[in-house]
Nucleic acid binder design. Structure first.
Lengths: 109, 109
DNA sequence: CAGAATCCCTATCGATACTG
DNA sequence: CAGTATCGATAGGGATTCTG
């Protein structure tokens, strides 16, 4: 597997690549919110606690580049932009759910 | 962990807790390496590419505090310290493997 | 509404040298 | 061997303001 942004030698599996994509502070909250279905920019901003505009833009761009998220813009006034998960992103659902379950079961112990 | 008011909020809080534990740059590489079994400090340092002493110490301490990793020190000369995963850490194995699989399947596409 | 542009801060990370 | 201690770099993140 190719190593992308990370200048380091790849770890013995592609975990590092995965973490580059999904390891940021906001990527999983965004992806999780989109499990629910297509959302507009402002909806995401309202739904995800404590995120700010700049971070949301940045993360969405990154997720789009990694083809986890699909962006659809409509030339309305005012503009409408909708974000949704594509197949690659949807395939993260069971994993994130398992991570959540792990958290519920073990984090407090 | 956060108080459970509704499903949504509860999920987000514990997910954040999980990411606080496991979201760092080195935690998953370390945990992954320990799936293999008990390892000494220097073994970890040699096995994990590009990690440095300071980061390894820091992450191990954090993982120990979160009771994912068990540390056993032996009063030999020179000192021997062995690290291993406890139950909580081992329960991450299937999840991390799935993440790895997801990476192999989708990251390059 | 959906961002882009700025400014600034601090947490994280890395390299190196040292020690019981 | 298994760490500490220090210092310096930088990327990530946050608050705010502006605009098509």
């Amino acid at each position: 597997m190719a190593v992308k942004k990370n200048k380091n030698i790849e770890f013995k599996c592609s975990l590092k690549d995965v973490l580059d994509i999904v390891g940021g502070k906001w990527s999983i909250p965004i992806i999780y919110t989109l499990f629910d279905g297509k959302k507009r920019f402002s909806e995401l901003e309202r739904t995800i606690p404590n995120i700010n505009t700049r971070m949301l833009v940045k993360e969405l761009k990154k997720l789009e580049e990694n083809r986890i998220v699909k962006r659809e813009a409509f030339a309305t006034v005012p503009p409408t932009v909708e974000y949704s998960l594509n197949h690659k992103g949807m395939m993260l659902k069971p994993i994130i759910m398992d991570l959540h379950k792990w958290g519920e079961e073990f984090v407090d112990q």
